[in-house]
């Protein structure tokens, strides 16, 4: 069987269930549109959806790059300075207890209605998973390797660069895979709170005008976009892991 068979069957099954639900509940199309109506709306509004998808895509990509870089740098600093880690880790965990959703209005106030506030949202939402996964990896290097390095008179910087970071790359990779799924959530929340462009904005707009078929179409595009990000980031992340395990 082709490796695409299962995903294809799963999609078909989902569409069938959806259509069955429409028939079974006899819901009007402005409450629950049938799959073909959504497909039609997606096709007719393809230019509109594409335009907004580019905005959300840009926010997510920039958010991923900035968030992943900040997370990686933080993790390395925490691993290099254990006292700093003891001081700031509880603080980092505390900031995670504040729901990012609740911060969205204030971020919009600070960074404006443009893509800036959405990038910050995406950065905030992925910063912790990346930092925590990578830091975990950096702290869990085989103790024997560190002993060996010490007997060889290794410098701290070289141990970090040549032993700790390469050993922790698989952990960083799993953090990045999570980040790829979280980043669009951050961007869309930002768009809901205040924006004039982006898929989140388009969803609200379509909802407000009772164009539920367009809203569904946008939602599906958003989901596909997230899947695409996850796929691309997973491929890059697996390369990192391969480099670490086999070179």
């Amino acid at each position: 069987m082709n490796r695409l068979t299962y995903p294809f069957c799963a999609t078909l099954l989902g569409l069938c269930l959806w259509q069955a639900l429409v028939w079974g509940t006899d819901a009007p199309h402005f409450i629950l549109p049938a799959p073909w109506r959504v497909a039609k709306a997606a096709f007719e509004s393809r230019a509109l959806i594409a335009e907004h998808a580019v905005v959300t895509g840009t926010e997510v990509i920039l958010g991923l790059i900035i968030g992943a870089s900040l997370g990686a740098i933080t993790a390395i600093q925490l691993a290099a300075f254990p006292r700093l880690a003891r001081l700031t880790l509880p603080l980092l965990v505390f900031t995670q207890a504040v729901p990012v959703f609740a911060l969205a209005p204030i971020l919009t106030l600070w960074f404006g209605y443009g893509i800036g506030s959405k990038i910050v949202m995406a950065v905030l939402i992925i910063y912790f998973p990346v930092t925590s996964a990578f830091y975990d990896g950096l702290s869990r290097v085989t103790p024997g390797l560190l002993d060996l390095a010490k007997t060889m008179g290794a410098s701290k910087t070289q141990v970090m660069l040549r032993i700790k970071i390469p050993s922790a790359l698989p952990s960083l990779a799993s953090g990045l895979k999570l980040a790829a799924v979280y980043a669009p959530i951050g961007a869309v929340i930002g768009e809901w709170v205040g924006a004039s462009r982006g898929l989140g904005y388009l969803m609200l707009l379509a909802n407000g005008r009772a164009k539920i078929d367009l809203m569904f179409a946008t939602l599906i595009v958003l989901a596909l976009l997230t899947l695409l990000f996850h796929k691309v980031v997973s491929m890059l992340a697996n390369r990192l892991t391969d480099a670490s395990v086999t070179g």
């Binding site: 060889m152 008179g153 910087t157 032993i163 086999t246 070179g247």
Partner: peptide, 18 residues
């Protein structure tokens, strides 16, 4: 170190001392 080849592993001491 699994990501280094044999010779790089043999000279790892010098590398670690910079």
């Amino acid at each position: 170190l699994p990501w280094l080849n044999l010779r790089e592993n043999v000279v790892v001491g010098a590398r670690l001392r910079g």
